[in-house]
Design a protein around this nucleic acid. Sequence first.
RNA 1: GGUUCCUUGGCCGAGUGGCUAGGCACCGGUCUGCAAAACCGUCUACGGCGGUUCGAAUCCGCCAGGAACCUCCA
Length: 491
Amino acid sequence: MEHPLHIYNTADRKKEQFIPLHSPFAGMYVCGPTVYGDPHLGHARPAITFDILFRYLSHVGYKVRYVRNITDVGHLENDADQGEDKIAKKARLEQLEPMEVVQYYLNRYRTAMEALNVLPPSIEPHASGHIIEQIRMVKEILDNGYAYESKGSVYFDVEKYNQKYHYGKLSGRNIEDMLNTTRELDGQEEKRNSVDFALWKKASPEHIMRWPSPWSDGFPGWHLECSAMSKKYLGDVFDIHGGGMDLIFPHHECEIAQSVAAGGKETVRYWMHNNMITINGQKMGKSLGNFITLEELFLGKHALLEQAYSPMTIRFFILQAQYRSTLDFSNEALQAAEKGLGRILEAFDNINKIPVSQQSSADIKTLKQQCYDAMNDDLNTPIAISHLFEAVRQINSALAGQITMTTEDISELQTVFQTFLVDIMGIKNEVKDGNAAYESFAKAVDMLLGMRMQAKLNKDWATSDKIRNELTALGFEIKDTKDGFEWKLNK
RNA sequence: GGUUCCUUGGCCGAGUGGCUAGGCACCGGUCUGCAAAACCGUCUACGGCGGUUCGAAUCCGCCAGGAACCUCCA
């Protein structure tokens, strides 16, 4: 490859060339959702970001194993030790078996991801299905002396670990600062140190999610599942670990500490973190209650939404920002994405209508390489999209007869759009793709517009405008061309 | 308070020393029965104040404003 992929590694805060440990294989682990609520716009960002990475790595020839976990136990409601398990709380509130809660929201998550054209990962392990692995890891950490048991629970000994290693290296913190700034919390008497975190928690009598262990009937700490499952499916050392920036501390910091404490070495070679989606400049999140669920976006059912936004509009909106930048939600920005996406899809659709010429006055020789360069530069999708828009202008110019293209030009455009827009960025035409009835439907519209053509020939503007206006009101965009008409359905 | 980071034209967003993306909106033109779309053109910005440099949105300092993390959150 001329311009190999570089990705930004949070661990040393710079872009580095991506060289997998065992080429042509590449392994990636991404922190998935805690399934206790409907997926919201914030969940779409990492899902799409790492979907792009998954698709791109596959495209350039790697055999990728993509693991994204499902957190269905251990993620506590308040602080790491005293809060109620998120799943268990939801189950109590809704009077359901915890696994019913998990299944219900997992189904909804998957439906939303499918709508966004996010490919399913290679493996989606559940934390609750890997209790044995997690218990084994706790034992290893205990055996190595970096954890201690206290009243049936097991805690990671951060201070001891920090004597030999650096707890806080990923987030750029040091233990002294944390000791000074960590609030006094209730119920910390079990821990030697306020910065220690739970590896295993003894379940209180009313706690329903519990498993037997050498220390107590209880459940694993939140950070443990990712360490245990990434190791199981990707090995002691693997290439990429991703997630939202808000997980850097403490979650990923703890993962590093657990893995090093258990196995003596760091497991992750490249840490990648997507930035947040903001709303009025503030992080969109569950705790702030300022989130909009994906279903609400798709249906336009939320007080902040002026209209519905299709899944592809959401996807395109997210791809128009680099994944490490914050992205601010607004109706105006979403509407701009919707319009831009429509323009790009229409041009893609029209490539095969470009008249073939012997001479080329188009400039598309560098297009493909420019797109690769953009993707290779830490997945810079907005730049890749900007190159596609340059191509859109050329496609439209060729259709308008202002520039000429050869067969080679046209087929190159087809290839580039198919590769980057469809295969890598995962954009599809929601109206047409996978719609078996589309052809019949399209012919019916053609028939109506044929009748309008006849009315126009008769200078019957009343009938002509009536057909056009009513179709427009239904969401169609009607265009008269010099020898006919064109239409599309705006979603 | 600590750590990390951000501030680009009406809006969204790229861009890490010179060649000053892209989208949306707006305005003017071409085309059209009228439109729409398209094309062409216009608008050319980098929070403030200093500094480094032949040259800075881009490097350094100070100031102002904002955010994330430090407790669950993608």
